[in-house]
Simulated scan of single mutants.
Amino acid sequence: MAVDDRWSRLRRGGYRTRADAERVLKRLRDPMLARQGGLLTTGQWLQRWYVIVEPHIRPSTARGYRQHLEQYLVPLLGREVSP
């Protein structure tokens, strides 16, 4: 955004206060929530997604997706990260 021929940074946040954001973060890190199916790792989500799409795509496409999931996406993005 130009203000007096200078650029200013537009900042946005998702929570009204830092305390609100920290409360949500604490809840998201709760291991009980993850066990109840409330949260999935990226790897878990990708594997569920693949089960849904696999019957609707060509076998060669399915092989390519599965290979990318197993070789790259799940090992690199799907790991659980401890806080």
Results as ranks from 00 to 15, higher is better:
Arg27Gly: 01
Trp7Pro: 09
Ser8Asp: 13
Thr41Arg: 06
Tyr72Trp: 04
Glu70Asn: 08
Pro59Glu: 14
Gly13Asn: 08
Gly13Ala: 12
Gly78Phe: 00
Thr41Ile: 01
Gly38Leu: 08
Trp7His: 14
Arg18Asp: 14
Pro55Phe: 03
Gly37Ile: 05
Pro59Lys: 15
Ala2Cys: 09
Gly38Lys: 10
Arg18Gln: 15
Gly37Met: 08
Lys26Gln: 11
Pro55Arg: 06
Pro83Arg: 10
Thr61Pro: 01
Ile57Glu: 02
Arg79Val: 03
Leu39Ser: 07
Gln71Pro: 00
Asp5Glu: 15
Leu40Tyr: 14
Trp49Leu: 03
Val3Cys: 11
Gln44Trp: 05
Pro59Met: 13
Leu73Phe: 00
Arg35Ala: 06
Val74Lys: 00
Gln44Glu: 15
Trp45Glu: 04
Glu22Arg: 15
Arg9Gln: 12
Ser8Trp: 13
Glu22Lys: 11
Leu39Trp: 06
Leu40Ala: 13
Leu76Val: 10
Leu73Arg: 00
Leu39Met: 12
Tyr72His: 13
Arg6Phe: 12
Gln44Tyr: 04
Val51Tyr: 07
Leu28Ser: 09
His68Val: 06
Gln47His: 03
Thr17Met: 04
Gly64Trp: 07
Arg79Gly: 11
Leu77Ser: 06
Trp49Thr: 02
Gly37Thr: 04
Pro31Met: 08
Trp49Asn: 01
Leu25Phe: 12
Glu70Ser: 01
Tyr65Ala: 02
Arg63Asn: 09
Glu22Tyr: 03
Trp45Gly: 04
Glu22Asp: 14
Arg27Leu: 11
Leu10Cys: 10
Leu40Gln: 15
Pro55Cys: 06
Thr42Ile: 12
Ser82Leu: 07
Asp30Gln: 01
His56Glu: 10
Leu40Cys: 12
Leu28His: 08
Leu69Trp: 00
Gly14Ser: 12
Leu28Phe: 02
Gly14Asp: 14
Gly38Asn: 09
Arg29Leu: 14
Val24Ile: 09
Gln67Lys: 05
Lys26Ser: 12
Glu70Leu: 02
Tyr15Ile: 07
Gln71Ser: 13
Leu10Gln: 13
Met1Cys: 10
Tyr50Pro: 00
Arg48Leu: 10
Asp5Met: 14
Gly43Phe: 00
Thr42Phe: 08
Lys26Thr: 12
Gln36Gly: 07
Glu80His: 04
Leu77Asn: 09
Tyr15Met: 12
Gln47Gly: 01
Gln67Ala: 03
His68Ile: 03
Gln67Tyr: 05
Leu28Asn: 08
Asp4Lys: 13
